[in-house]
Design a protein around this nucleic acid. Structure first.
Length: 494
RNA sequence: GGCCCCUUCGUCUAUCGGUUAGGACAGCGGCUUUUCAAGCCGUUAAGAGGGGUUCGACUCCCCUAGGGGCUACCA
């Protein structure tokens, strides 16, 4: 054993990377990076009945998109093939089946496990009786007393069997958890867990513990749902005389009704959030703060800052409701604080109405940035800006009770003034400020009101009653489009 | 039912015996204003209940209540 921090994220490939799994992976990665240790990805695929096609690829790919790459274990090679790297392999658990079988046999020999020949029917019957009489449902130990020679004979005769842990029947065990401290369990209440199934594959309990040992894992960081089986895992370590890793059981992520986070109530696949346009940085930031906050008076952290500040012992004990409102806010924040180029690159692919005028398109996208929560929304937000012809029939170009004639008068005067502005000055840096000064000057000179001039102008330019200011619109649209729109509005009113 | 874990604003959280219990999201209000956003400022809102321990408890202990997890030849 080394003192090096070696942590693993060990999902089973039964679906896709889950938002809860993401947080578990993140906390593992944060610790590894902070301590200069190894972050290992191991795939736990011992349940052959639940394998999902493409599950492994999805998990690895999504982790990579999220900036969470394991430096050891499973990864995707250049061709997108599932591969392994590192000196503690195999990292695909099913490939360690022989090792697990050996370990199980050793435990049998040491008297720490036994062969069980009970049928599924008997077990079910047993459970039913126990339930009916209000007793805890657990294996009654019928096969515990079968001598090893007899068991081996029955196996040789082809009888189906599983291997169960031979747990102590009395006394207590106190386990230590980084987040929860001491936890005491009563051995008499813990079931003789199956560690080798009748198909020869190990269950999680055996596979994970043996692999954690073989891979010299220093910290096991996993979901709280594993807490009840911790004594069984410790028992396996103790049976072999191995030093167990430090355990940290993370609080669960919850639905709004406080039940365990599920896809019944939430989108739970990280990939779905990525598809919707949530930024990896925002998701990481958000998920990191579900159950932990280094200071409590700050919300924005880069991945690097999270690495520097992470502290397992400060992780909360209580579950955290997964609430999207804050994720939205974070996404908006990241969208607004990134460089223009990066923002445009993110948003531009969503725009369908292609225009050859890239400068125009960029100006449109930049204009609506403050209204965008998700990149895809920019499409709708810029639709009327990019349109050739606007439909004024559904909006009021006139301000409040303003007569049409007055609106026409104001628009015509502004148009006349704008016609004298050079094309290039229209879209120049700071043009919007210039427009604001000039137009407001005009309004003052004529003795008009802001509303009765600016409202018609703005609606004429945007085609909407709610929109950015007319000054910004002029700068974004440029001379030709602006004049054309004002003309169209005057036309419509006349 | 049994076992285990948990309990600060609606939500995410800070507080490691002494604070006017702090921040953020959401909400509400205001500023700005031609509209809607954004931004800025302000504001509503919390220690589940009951016992202890202590000069002093959100903080430590116990009980109760509530919530959650586990209770598979699934992870």
């Amino acid at each position: 054993m080394t003192d090096k921090v070696r942590v693993r994220f060990a999902p089973s490939p039964t679906g896709f990377l889950h938002i809860g799994g993401l947080r578990t992976a993140l906390y593992n990665e944060l610790l590894a990076k902070q301590k200069g240790g190894s972050f290992i990805l191991r795939i736990e695929d011992t349940d052959q009945t639940r394998l999902v096609e493409g599950g492994i690829e999805n998990i690895v790919r999504t982790m990579k998109l999220m900036g969470l790459e394991a430096n050891e274990g499973i990864y995707l090679d250049n061709k997108g093939q599932v591969s392994e790297r590192g000196e503690y392999g195999p990292y695909l658990q099913s490939r360690r089946k022989e090792k697990h079988a050996e370990y199980a046999e050793q435990m049998v020999v040491m008297g720490k496990a036994y062969h069980c020949f009970c049928s599924a029917e008997r077990l079910e019957e047993l459970r039913r009786e126990q339930q009916a009489s209000g007793r805890p449902t657990m294996y009654d130990g019928k096969c515990r007393a079968i001598p090893l020679e007899e068991a081996e004979k029955r196996i040789a005769e082809g009888e189906k069997f599983v291997i169960r842990l031979k747990l102590p029947k009395q006394g207590k065990i106190t386990a230590w958890d980084v987040i929860r401290d001491d936890i005491t369990f009563d051995w008499s209440l813990i079931d003789d867990q199956v560690i080798i199934k009748s198909d020869g594959f190990p269950t999680y309990h055996l596979a994970a513990t043996c692999d954690d040992h073989d891979m010299e894992i220093s910290h096991v960081i996993r979901g709280e749902d594993w807490l009840p089986s911790l004594p069984k895992h410790l028992f396996i370590f103790e049976s072999f005389g191995w030093t167990p890793p430090k355990y940290a059981h993370l609080p669960l992520l919850l639905n709004a009704d406080h039940s365990k986070l599920s896809k019944r109530q939430n989108d739970v696949a990280v990939e779905d959030y990525l598809k919707k346009g949530y930024l990896p940085d925002a998701i990481i930031n958000f998920v990191a703060l579900l159950g932990w906050n280094p200071t409590g008076d700050r919300e924005i952290y880069t991945h690097e800052e999270l690495i520097a500040m992470f502290d397992l012992a400060k992780v909360n004990k209580a579950g955290a409701v997964f609430n999207l409102e804050k994720l939205d806010w974070l996404n908006e924040h990241y969208l607004r604080s990134m460089p223009n180029d990066a923002y445009l690159e993110l948003v531009a692919p969503h725009v369908q109405d292609k225009t050859d005028d890239h400068g125009f398109l960029d100006r449109c996208l930049l204009l609506v940035r403050d209204r965008v929560t998700l990149p895809s929304q920019a499409v709708e937000l810029t639709a009327d800006l990019l349109k050739e012809d606007l439909d004024y029939s559904t909006v009021n170009i006139t301000w409040k009770t303003q007569p049409k004639e007055q609106a026409v008068e104001r628009l015509s005067a502004v148009r006349e003034m704008l016609a004298t502005v050079k094309d290039t000055d229209f879209v120049a840096q700071g043009a919007r400020t210039e427009f604001e000064m000039e137009i407001k000057k005009l309004i003052t000179e004529k003795g008009w009101g802001n509303g009765d001039t600016l409202w018609p102008l703005r609606v004429a330019l945007s085609g909407n009653e709610k929109s950015p200011s007319p000054f910004e619109l002029l700068e974004v649209l440029g001379k030709d489009r602006s004049l054309q729109r004002i003309d169209a509005a005057i036309d419509f009113l006349g």
